[in-house]
C-alpha cells in the first residue's frame, strides 16, 4: 500500500511537449510510471514519447482513462491548467510549476473547494514542488528516482532538495519510503501537511512519518494539532530557516517570517508540545527514525 500513487495510477502530462515536460516525462516512464497521455493545446493528434497528445484534459481523461495529471505548464497559464483538471474530473493534480501568482492559487483553491462541495473527490499537490513518488511503483514528479527505496517511512515536505536529503538518509538506513509527497513552497498550496498526515495515518504501509517544514505561515502548527488529536504513528519534524532573517523571502514564496509569526521557534515549540520528535540537525533525520523503528519488524 501507499498513498496517492500506485502502480494502477494513469498519468497524463500537461505540456508534455515542452522541454521540461519532455525531459521529466521520459524520466517518469523509465522509472515505470504509467503515463497514458499528454496534453498540449493545439498539438492534439500527435504522438510524443510514444503517448497520444490531446488538445484538452477532458479528452485525455475520456479517451486515455487518465486519473492523475502532472502539470508542467509555465506559471502564467498554470492555474488555468489546474482549473481544467478540476473541470475534467481528474482525481489527483500534481503541479510542479514554480512562480504561480498567489491570487491565481486563491482562485484555484475556491474551485477545489466547490468541487468538494459538489461531491467530486479531487486533490491537488503543489504547486512549486518536486511531485509525488511511491518508490518502486510510480513517480509523478522531478525527483531523482534512484535515491528512493520502497519501504516504511512516509515523507511530506515543503522543499524539494531537503526532501531528497531525507529520502537519501532513510534509504541509507535501510528503512525506505512508502510514499514521498512534496507539498510545495508557496504560501497557498493544494494540500497541507495535515491533509497528507491524515493519509499516512490511514496507510498500513506507513509506519512513521518525516515532516519537513520551514519558516512562514502556520501549516506546521496546524499539523502539530492534528498529530496530537488524531495520529498514532510517530512523526519526526525538521523545520528549516532557523538562521533566516525576518521579513525576507528565503527563495520559496512562502518562506518568510512576517510580523513575528511563522518563526522557526514557534513551529518547533508547537511540534514539541504536540509530542512530535523535532530533529535539530538535518543530517540526523534518518538515524532518528531508524532508532525509533529499531526492533519493529517491517510491515
Amino acid at each position: 500500500m501507499s498513498i496517492l500513487l500506485s502502480r494502477e495510477s494513469r498519468i497524463l502530462v500537461q505540456n508534455i511537449t515542452g522541454g521540461t515536460g519532455t525531459f521529466h516525462s521520459r524520466q517518469c516512464i523509465e522509472y515505470g510510471s504509467n503515463i497514458v497521455a499528454g496534453v498540449t493545446p493545439g498539438r492534439g493528434g500527435e504522438v510524443h514519447l510514444g503517448r497520444p497528445v490531446f488538445n484538452t484534459v477532458g479528452e485525455a481523461v475520456r479517451q486515455a482513462g487518465a486519473d492523475v495529471s502532472l502539470v508542467f505548464v509555465p506559471a502564467p497559464a498554470a492555474a488555468d491548467a489546474v482549473l481544467e483538471c478540476v473541470d475534467a474530473g481528474v482525481a489527483l493534480i500534481v503541479c510542479i510549476t514554480e512562480g504561480i501568482p498567489v491570487l491565481d492559487m486563491a482562485r484555484v483553491k475556491r474551485a477545489l473547494a466547490a468541487a468538494h462541495k459538489a461531491g467530486f473527490g479531487v486533490r491537488m499537490i503543489g504547486p512549486n514542488c518536486p511531485g509525488v513518488i511511491t518508490p518502486g511503483a510510480c513517480k509523478a514528479g522531478i525527483m531523482p528516482g534512484y535515491i528512493h527505496q520502497a519501504g516504511r517511512v512516509g515523507i511530506v515536505s515543503r522543499s524539494g532538495t531537503l526532501t531528497y536529503e531525507a529520502v537519501y538518509q532513510t534509504t541509507q538506513q535501510g528503512l525506505g519510503q512508502s510514499t514521498v509527497v512534496g507539498i510545495g513552497g508557496d504560501p497557498i498550496s493544494g494540500s497541507s501537511f495535515t491533509d497528507i498526515l491524515e493519509l499516512f495515518e490511514k496507510d498500513p504501509a506507513t509506519e512513521a512519518v518525516v515532516m519537513i517544514g520551514e519558516i512562514g505561515g502556520s501549516a506546521e502548527e496546524d499539523a502539530a494539532r492534528f498529530y496530537r488529536e488524531r495520529m498514532s504513528k510517530p512523526v519526526f519534524g525538521f523545520i528549516a530557516g532557523r538562521s533566516a532573517p525576518p521579513g525576507r523571502r528565503m527563495g520559496h514564496a512562502g518562506a518568510i517570517v512576517e510580523g513575528g509569526s511563522g518563526t522557526h521557534e514557534s513551529k518547533v515549540k508547537a511540534l514539541r508540545e504536540a509530542g512530535i520528535t523535532v530533529v535539530e540537525n538535518l543530517g540526523d533525520i534518518g538515524a532518528a527514525v531508524a532508532k525509533r523503528l529499531a526492533g519493529k519488524a517491517a510491515v
Binding site: 522543499s159 520559496h252 540537525n281
Partner: peptide
C-alpha cells in the same frame, strides 16, 4: 546550494556547527 529549502537547511547546519552564514 541547490534548492531553497536545502539552502536554508545548510545555513542552519552552519549555525548549529558554531558558524554564521554570509548569505542564502
Amino acid at each position: 546550494v541547490n534548492g531553497a529549502g536545502l539552502a536554508m537547511g545548510t545555513m542552519d547546519t552552519i549555525a548549529l556547527a558554531g558558524g554564521r552564514p554570509a548569505n542564502f
